[in-house]
Design a protein around this nucleic acid. Structure first.
Length: 270
DNA sequence: ACAGTAACCTGTTTGC
DNA sequence: TGCAAACAGGTTACTG
């Protein structure tokens, strides 16, 4: 997916079109994404007004007076604003109609999720164990240092785990580790506090800059308007295996860490 | 509690 | 050019 910057970009993009607006109808073309979509969703949302458009980790939260729609974009999901009666395009599985536009969910791989909860979304099983939001003070070097003591897993896997920090996926974990000069394979429990301080700074800086650029468009990610994000041009290691390191010019290495490809510089990252 | 692996599904890229 | 294999931004759930 869409990692945190892409989800945040999407949130900011769709909010002006739907905030305070009432849903006139919902079209569901499929019964399930990753999990079954409640068949009562259309009825639940009809004539409901969007009270807020929030985000927790990579989950978008559309809040209504009587509950919350939790949207996850999975690996290939995207949302866009279309004209009210524009025909559904390929892989657009869901459409929420408003008076002057419609919100479309497109997800070719169907790894996304659409969940309705009448209770507090933060206590939903999918959200309740998430680690801190990376752009808050709760993510600190001290926090990562403490949580990693005794852990043997690779630091990259550690920071990609949503229970450690929420919202950091393969792209931004790779970029942050390069920025902090840390070898992604290094055992999480054997990294000093000073280095975790540095890594924390790198994570925050990179996520902020990516949000500013509108996210990273690779294959499927498009912004709500249909425009791509521009962070791709700033990637230093992700997708650049074999190409020269932008700092030392040595060819970047590629390894597999917990079944995900990881690109790093064997000279700059130790 | 932790580590490792398979699973969900489809489109695009790669390599023969 | 054609076809099959490999690979892809995420996360849960299962095993040992």
């Amino acid at each position: 997916m869409p990692e945190l910057p892409e989800v945040e970009t999407t949130r900011r993009g769709i909010a002006p079109y739907i905030l305070g607006k009432e849903i006139s109808g919902v079209t569901l073309k499929i019964k399930k994404l990753r999990w079954p979509i409640p068949s009562t969703l259309s009825r639940t949302l009809k004539q409901a007004r969007v009270e807020s458009v929030g985000r927790r980790a990579k989950y978008l939260l559309l809040e209504f007076a009587h509950g919350t729609l939790i949207i996850h974009l999975g690996m290939s999901g995207s949302l866009r604003i279309a004209r009210p009666n524009q025909p559904l395009q390929a892989h657009e599985h869901v459409s929420f109609q408003f008076s002057d536009c419609s919100l479309r969910l497109r997800d070719p791989r169907k790894f996304g999720a659409l969940i309705w909860t009448a209770a507090d979304p933060q206590s939903h099983p999918l959200l309740k164990d998430l680690g801190p939001e990376p752009l808050t003070r709760q993510l600190s070097g001290q926090y990562l240092y403490q949580r990693s003591r005794g852990r043997k897993i690779a630091v990259k896997e550690f920071i990609m785990n949503s229970k450690t920090v929420s919202g950091v996926g393969n792209i931004y974990a790779s970029e942050a580790l390069f920025d902090a000069g840390i070898d992604p394979r290094r055992a999480a429990g054997r990294i000093s506090l000073a280095r975790y301080d540095r890594l924390t700074e790198s994570i925050k800086t990179i996520l902020r800059r990516a949000i500013k650029k509108g996210g990273t468009s690779l294959r499927d990610f498009i912004r709500e308007s249909g425009q791509p994000g521009y962070f791709k041009q700033e990637l230093k290691v992700y997708g650049r295996a074999g190409l020269p390191c932008r700092i030392c010019k040595k060819p970047l290495q590629s390894v597999c860490i917990s079944q995900r490809s990881s690109v790093y510089c064997s000279h700059c990252q130790t």
